[in-house]
Write a protein that binds this DNA or RNA. Sequence first.
DNA 1: GTCATAACTTAGTATAACTAAGTTAATGTG
DNA 2: CACATTAACTTAGTTATACTAAGTTATGAC
Lengths: 231, 231
Amino acid sequence: MEPAEALLPSKRTRARRGDGARLREEILVAADRLLRETGQESNVSIDAIAKAVGCTAPSIYLHFPDRRTLLIEVCERYYALFGATLDAAGAAADDPLEALAHRGEAYVHFGLAHPEPYRLLFMHGPNDVPATQDIARVRSISAFDDQLGAVQRCKDAGYFPDGDVYEIACALWASAHGITSLLISKPGFPWPPLADFVRATVLAHGLGLMSHTSSNCAHSLDLERAPIGER
Amino acid sequence: MEPAEALLPSKRTRARRGDGARLREEILVAADRLLRETGQESNVSIDAIAKAVGCTAPSIYLHFPDRRTLLIEVCERYYALFGATLDAAGAAADDPLEALAHRGEAYVHFGLAHPEPYRLLFMHGPNDVPATQDIARVRSISAFDDQLGAVQRCKDAGYFPDGDVYEIACALWASAHGITSLLISKPGFPWPPLADFVRATVLAHGLGLMSHTSSNCAHSLDLERAPIGER
DNA sequence: GTCATAACTTAGTATAACTAAGTTAATGTG
DNA sequence: CACATTAACTTAGTTATACTAAGTTATGAC
């Protein structure tokens, strides 16, 4: 029998050999809890996490290179469910354009339900965390390829005959992101009702690109794919 | 004659009485220079500013309550020109819908030309700086009222007969913001060409909301004004 | 038992924002 | 023109932060 265990709140027992990942997981869980409870990334300090876990601060650096990378991993866990959520929302509609609107609404709602993760993943500066610049990861967490599919189904149904699927997917992403991020940044602004806000954007694209030939506007859209974004 | 002036790089002479604002101005200029030179808000520390100005760190707190408020003021100076820039871009077009597209392009270009100011003013968290939540200031720096006017001119020209001007203005702002902020956040992503990107969004709104009555989509837009944004 | 080493801790550095309390010098007043 | 007032600024510090160097503990193979 080991000596009387102290009754201190969170005295961790050292992990078994080969089970070092246990602490790693506890760190992620604690950081997530702190993020949700405090609602602000800045409150999730290394010391706060260590205290919550019951280990010391330097132990965290055995499992994560730095604080930001740790936080990004916490946030990315939320977005593991993101694609499935959007798909489920889209599947509830028969019409593919309607499905696109549902996906857009679901996108915004998901972002608003988890504002700080959204902010860290999609509203950072270009040099904040290298991981957030990895294109494959960006495509993955934003469910971009699913979005391409959803737009393609619209095109297949005849919705935007002259539109470029890739560009429309980007434009709709940008719109949904714009709504989400503005609502997160400026919650006090008198925004229109959210559902109509999203729907108007999606339907505008759907209808506008449909009636493209009847345009009374001087310029055609002449869409083309770009290899890389230019400043 | 005063004793031999040291030849140190930036030995400030104390301001005259009643001219305390001189240091304030020098601080703003120096912070702006640092922001542009380093390209990252995090590099513009109080110490760095003080060193650049040639004063000591605490002197800065005689003129600004905290670092973030100071930085916001630096950024807002950029956006003093914003409204005029958008107006100029819009004035170059005859057709009001075309003008709206020009405004959108100008919006994105301005943001990309000054990414860090844009980021600090429009991509922050809700609790970062109180000043960024002031609705009047938000309307002012984003040139929202001008945008309302530009949308109204489209409606007057018959562009979106069933559309709500306020909601369309918000939607177009969100789209332009979405493009701008995603390009800032994810510069490595293979975005479509910027001009077409913006144009497609604006024209989609213009054309889509025009052809509203001919919609083959089940739902009408039934737009209505909201008093305040709900989560 | 013993020993290699995975899993941690102790003690510290560096840099950041911000503050308390003092000093310097410009200027209105006698 | 002395001199008191006080705006304008400094010196010296506190606290909080991310992160590191170097040590210690205990697990489990032998």
